[in-house]
Every structure is written in structure tokens, then in C-alpha cells.
């Protein structure tokens, strides 16, 4: 019983990490309707920025971390003018192809600048696990999970209550309507990439606490995809339940199925959950359904 709870809890925390990374994906998708295949690379770039400003430059941990977040935001903001501005009016397909180009480009840049070697990652949070009786939890992931829940609430309120957030929601609804209301679609998309980059960097911090960083960290981007799809691509709040569902399922699969089948079946489990749920509800659990009136 204790074991079941531990598997489920650790799974939920991992799921919330996916949710945080998926949040970057969703913010970008909402504004641009672009399915960002480079999400994992954004996490890697964020991770290297943190490493660079803290361990490499030797700045105090939190100063370096703050600078890394600023650097991440700037990096995100220039993606739109650099890569997408000329594609205005082009098909979504060509924009998605650009994100694949971005993936290759960033991977190349990371390898050229930082090399393929493994780097230590700074611990912004203590690496000592949290224990409740017999249950042990990863402290980085636990703090990250709580942070992600609060952040999801904050970002949802931002999109629904504040003016700049509402502008971005209008852009998410329809680019032509947004323009006819005096909203700059391009600027909103640029902001979305900036936000997506900051969220990815935060994800890197919780994910890599106590670990090290290489370009392979990018795989977390694909692991987070089922959570984004399950939440419904437009829904920030929906990422929390979606993350928990996927994470718990994966945690339980790792605990009970993997030992039996003798492999890491749990790694494909999120995709399985995603396929089943999307089969039942194509717009995800909380996504924008096409409005149909009778």
C-alpha cells in the first residue's frame, strides 16, 4: 500500500514537471497555432543558460539564475522576428517545419558552443529527499510540482483577467479578429515565445536539480507532449490534471508493469494514455472545443 502511494506520488510529481514544460508548449501554440517541435531544445538552451550564468561565470546562485531567466526571455523574444516574421500568411505547415528547423539549429548551436560533454547543473534546491514515514520524494520535483500548480493558476488568470493576457487570448482565438481589434498578432507571438522560453528554463531548473545537463535533456520535450495534447493545447489550467493523470499512470506502470515485462514499458505509457483519451475526446480534456450550436 505504502509502495502504491509512493509510486503514485512520484509519478504525479513527474507529471507536474511535464505539465510545466508543456506549459511553454501550450503558450506558444495558443498564440501562433504552431506545434513547436523544438520544445525540448528550449529546455536545453534554458538549462545551459542557467549553467553558464551560475557555475561557468561563477556568479552567486540566485543572481545567475535571475540573469538566466532574463537571457531566456530575450532569447525567446527574438525567435519570432528572426524565424517567423517572414512567414506571416504562410500555412501552419510551413511554420511547423520551421520549428523542426529550429530544433536542428538549436541542437547544433548547443553542440558547437557547449560541446557534447556532460556538465554539472547547479542545485538551486537542496538535493536531500523529502521523507514522510516510509515515503521518499525528490525534493526538486516536489517543489517544482507545487510551483507548477501555482504558476498554472497565475498564468490562467493572466490570460483571462489582465489586459496583455486578454490580448494574447484574442490572438489565440483568431488572428484576423485580433488585428481588426487593433492587436498586433506578431507581437503577441513574440511574447509567447519569450514566455515559452522562460517556462522551459524554470522546467530545466526543477528537472535537473541534482542532475547534470547534456543536449540529451531535450527528450523531456517529447515526454511532455502527451500532457499538452491531453490538456487540449489551449488550456493552461488543464495541464495540471492532465499532468497528474499521465504522471500517475506512468509511475504505476513503472512500479508494477515494468518488473513483469522486464523492460521500460512505462516510457511509452504516457503516449498510450494519450492515444486512448484523444480517441474518446479529440479536443483533449480541457481544450477549446469547436463551438457547435443547434
Amino acid at each position: 500500500m505504502i509502495q502504491l502511494i509512493e509510486y503514485a506520488l512520484n509519478g504525479a510529481l513527474l507529471g507536474l514537471l511535464y505539465a510545466l514544460i508543456a506549459m511553454g508548449f501550450v503558450v506558444i501554440y495558443r498564440a501562433s497555432k504552431v506545434f513547436n517541435f523544438a520544445q525540448g531544445e528550449l529546455v536545453v538552451v534554458g538549462a545551459f543558460l542557467v549553467w553558464f550564468f551560475t557555475l561557468d561565470l561563477g556568479l552567486p546562485l540566485y543572481v545567475g539564475f535571475a540573469l538566466a531567466l532574463i537571457g531566456a526571455a530575450i532569447f525567446g523574444l527574438i525567435i519570432e522576428p528572426l524565424l517567423f516574421r517572414r512567414l506571416v500568411g504562410q500555412s501552419t505547415f510551413s511554420m511547423v517545419m520551421v520549428t523542426i528547423g529550429l530544433l536542428i539549429l538549436l541542437r547544433g548551436l548547443v553542440l558547437v558552443i557547449f560541446g557534447p560533454s556532460v556538465r554539472p547543473f547547479p542545485d538551486l534546491i537542496s538535493t536531500a529527499p523529502i521523507t514522510f514515514g516510509d515515503i521518499t520524494l525528490n525534493r526538486g520535483l516536489a517543489y517544482g510540482g507545487i510551483f507548477t500548480i501555482l504558476l498554472a493558476i497565475g498564468v490562467s488568470l493572466y490570460f483571462s483577467r489582465t489586459r496583455p493576457g486578454l490580448r494574447m487570448t484574442v490572438v489565440a482565438e483568431d488572428h484576423q479578429i485580433a488585428q481588426s481589434m487593433g492587436i498586433s498578432v506578431r507581437r503577441s507571438i513574440a511574447y509567447a515565445w519569450g514566455m515559452g522560453m522562460v517556462l522551459s528554463t524554470l522546467g530545466a531548473v526543477f528537472y535537473l536539480n541534482g542532475k547534470s545537463v547534456t543536449f540529451l535533456v531535450a527528450e523531456i520535450g517529447f515526454a511532455a507532449l502527451p500532457v499538452a495534447l491531453l490538456a487540449g493545447l489551449e488550456s493552461v489550467g488543464g495541464l495540471i490534471p492532465a499532468g497528474i493523470i499521465v504522471g500517475v499512470a506512468q509511475g504505476l506502470a513503472a512500479g508494477y508493469i515494468d518488473p513483469v515485462v522486464g523492460g521500460s514499458f512505462s516510457a511509452v505509457f504516457p503516449y498510450l494514455v494519450m492515444v486512448i483519451i484523444l480517441f474518446l475526446r479529440p479536443s483533449g480534456l480541457f481544450g477549446w472545443r469547436i463551438v457547435e450550436r443547434v
Partner: peptide, 23 residues
């Protein structure tokens, strides 16, 4: 320009539509 076809922001509430209009 109030475009043809009643282009409301479908997934937003009435008030959010209006508030966004006054942005």
C-alpha cells in the same frame, strides 16, 4: 470594422470580448 459574419471570440465570455475590445 465590424466584419461580416458576427466574429465573436467564441471561447471567451461576453464581458471578456468587451474588455478586450477596450484594450
Amino acid at each position: 470594422h465590424v466584419m461580416e459574419g458576427r466574429k465573436v471570440l467564441e471561447h471567451m465570455t461576453v464581458e471578456q470580448n468587451l474588455v478586450a475590445g477596450g484594450h
